[in-house]
């Protein structure tokens, strides 16, 4: 089956990103396809590369990044939500006149249309949120 996942909460604050990560791994293991993972609301914070949790804690952003690399996943951060919360890729940082970017490898920034298109293309859309 082809899935689109939506993640609406930030890492560590809320379990939704952990659950989605575990779901994605399990689905891929069973041979299902993850068409897209869309990060919205505070969920955009799953895409920062500037997270440094204690060593004995899980590394949520890096785990997403690595999973994306292994399975060629499409991880999309909503641009409107990202702009509000200070998530920038290099192009967006330049456009906004910011002095830094902070997006982790494997994520891309795009519009809300990607969520709707993901919903149309996938057999199932699952929302992980509060």
């Amino acid at each position: 089956m082809k899935y689109t996942l939506m993640i609406n909460e930030g890492p560590y604050q809320h379990q939704s990103s952990d659950t989605a990560l575990q779901f994605a791994r399990a689905a891929l293991e069973k041979g299902h396809e993850i068409y897209r993972v869309f990060f919205y609301h505070d969920g955009v914070n799953n895409g920062t590369r500037l997270s440094a949790p204690p060593q004995d804690d899980r590394q949520i952003q890096k785990e997403w990044s690595e999973l994306a690399k292994q399975h060629d996943l499409d991880l999309v951060i909503c641009i409107a939500a990202a702009q509000r919360r200070g998530l920038m890729d290099a192009d967006e940082a330049k456009r906004q006149g910011m002095d830094a970017d902070n997006i982790i490898e494997g994520f891309r920034i795009s519009g809300l249309g990607q969520l709707i298109e993901g919903g149309i293309q996938a057999d199932r859309t699952l929302v992980f949120g509060d």
């Binding site: 609406n8 919205y40 609301h41 409107a80 939500a81 509000r84 519009g111 809300l112 249309g113 969520l115 709707i116 298109e117 149309i120």
Partner: peptide, 19 residues
């Protein structure tokens, strides 16, 4: 919380996709 406002943004985009 921001959920309602950002929900409305999704709803408006969905209209453009003629769903």
């Amino acid at each position: 919380t921001v959920y309602a406002l950002e929900s409305l943004e999704v709803v408006l985009i969905s209209a453009a996709f003629e769903q």
